[in-house]
Nucleic acid binder design. Structure first.
Lengths: 340, 340
DNA sequence: CTGAAAGCGCTTACAG
DNA sequence: CTGAAAGCGCTTACAG
């Protein structure tokens, strides 16, 4: 009598089972399922029928080990406390999930070192693609991405550089447009107040500077840059500081809605009439901005579309399809409400 | 001359390289690294030195394929638009990352069907552990978890049931305590306003009901239950409806801060004095609640601690250690501010 | 267009 | 306490 094979079988239906049922070799079954190379349509049909019948689901670990890449996509965002990135993430995750890819989420906390560590550990899982926020990262992280050979799409900002894929908007132009809006409203002394000071914020600052300079109204005392993390409370603190300035400002353009909402609440507390005494504008059109008293004028950024489009572009790259439009600019919209 | 081996080597340092450098077998190297069984301390030292020297990093895909479980942990949360779950996630992810585990995040959108699909696809990756929000899920999802044999810890709620692991707080008691606070403030007609109507909200409702009944003040017209997703805007809508009720309520206990913040803003718009005309209370102490006008009285839930503790408990289960305290109640705190 | 063989990098089960 | 063999479930590289 033969010794029982020492089986470690997990009980799951394997590709070998499918192949046997379809009466083809495992390789053919594999190719039929992935749509790779030309396989006789009749065999493809037999394989698919067997998959259906047996309820076969590919094993991601085995696939990742055998092939260069698995079925996960690495996504790096600065923070989840900012609703912007939650929207981005959810949209990207949705598109990727529908294509059979899982999302591996890393939160960098705006820290280049942490980003590198996260990416390193994500790379171990052989992701099929990478999604990152913006272009600002350490040289080593950049090299990790390039060296991995894994396709990568950049989110939120745009770049037409060679070999770079991006879906976003011109943060500078958006900053410029909002400043134009305030100028058109007759405001002259327009302060720019920012926190966190991440690259996108600095690009908005540039837009504000250009518009102010063109109008001959720029002055360094109008710039309020605070590297602390953004929050409603900090918005209040900044507002109190700025509104006490002499000569008085007549508008404050906050680099994001968190700050602007905090400023609006602080104005309420202080009894400073908005927009009569000072106009207030924000950025991103986050939840609640339309509920403020008065409702907040802001820049609506199409982050859900950005997340979905970027994921779609990455999917193309993963499949080896040629992407003709390497840089997609989804624009922005100035949402005028009662605060300006 | 021999034919060159057809190598598919990825160039990465493998366990075999480490074993060779340390002059032990790969199995011994593997055991030394995982701390499994007793290995001669001297060999362990040699292996560790080789790991150090060669910069060896284990391949998660290979490990997942060969063993029953990989180095990822599945985490299921209802929504990321609720800051509560972002805090929970970040804390859990931090603890898991420090132990070498990656987090696989699934967002269920409060949908039992979606939860099942997400879990199913996460399970394919052979997670080492599972973290889920609360106890409310479909029977099939429950069976998927049990059938997988993967350890699971429940977040946010508590249960002392046999074989169930949970870290959270008594949502019912928290609802009861906040109602007691309002009663102690002399409020009599206290409405309970809720959205989403997830299980935790319903438990808070129970706490409110018990307190109101004990005080002989409960009435069905005081219950405002709306199944729509929670938002600032909905809070405003509910506030407007409730405040117009006859006879008038003198307090509204909202099931979460989103709603309560929206109500506070709506009160400002309508010119309804809070808390003079009506007191307002929330739940969770989300960002911004302390910045409201007036600042919001709410229940602070220790979600960061819950996330960290739950992850730590899961780690113990993964390592096969015995967990004596299967149910950890981290409590809550009534944060009294000016809105009540 | 199809397949037998080998291999991805680890761990399990068995034996000593 | 240690190891040679086999295997996890897939895909690559080669050959026909």
């Amino acid at each position: 009598m033969q010794k029982a094979p020492r089986s470690r079988a997990t009980g799951r239906v394997t590709l070998a089972d499918v192949a046997q049922a379809a009466q083809v070799s495992p390789i053919t079954a594999s190719r039929a399922l992935r749509g790779e190379r030309a396989v006789d349509p009749e065999l493809v049909a037999r394989v698919q029928a067997a998959v259906e019948r047996l309820g076969y689901v590919p094993d991601p670990a085995a696939r990742a080990l055998a092939s260069r890449h698995g079925t996960q996509v690495a996504l790096l965002v600065p923070a989840l406390s900012n609703a912007l990135f939650v929207d981005l993430l959810e949209a990207a995750q949705g598109t990727l999930a529908r294509a059979g890819y899982q999302t591996l989420i890393g939160v960098t906390h705006y820290d280049a070192e942490e980003e590198e560590q996260l990416l390193r550990s994500q790379l171990l899982h052989r992701p099929a693609g990478i999604l990152v926020s913006g272009f600002d990262r350490s040289e080593r992280t950049r090299q990790l991405i390039a060296g991995s050979g894994v396709p990568c799409v950049h989110l939120m900002e745009t770049s037409s550089a060679e070999g770079v894929y991006s879906v976003g908007l011109s943060q500078r132009d958006a900053g410029h447009a909002m400043t134009q809006h305030l100028l058109a409203r007759g405001r002259r002394r327009i302060a720019f107040a920012a926190a966190q000071l991440d690259p996108r914020t600095m690009q908005r600052l540039e837009g504000w500077r250009d518009a102010m300079r063109d109008a001959g109204l720029h002055g360094p005392t109008l710039e309020w840059l605070n590297p602390a993390p953004s929050s409603l409370a900090l918005g209040g603190v900044l507002f109190e500081q700025i509104v006490g300035q002499v000569p008085p400002v007549d508008a404050i353009f906050f680099c994001n809605d968190d700050l602007a909402q905090g400023a609006l609440l602080c104005a309420l507390r202080m009894g400073v009439p908005v927009p009569q005494r000072v106009a207030i504008a924000g950025f991103n059109d986050l939840t609640g901005s339309d509920q403020m008293v008065p409702p907040l004028t802001t820049v609506r950024t199409p982050r859900a579309e950005i997340g979905a489009e970027a994921a779609a572009m990455l999917l193309q790259l993963i499949r080896g399809e040629t992407v003709t439009k390497r840089c997609i600019d989804l624009g922005f919209e100035i949402v005028v409400r009662a605060s300006t």
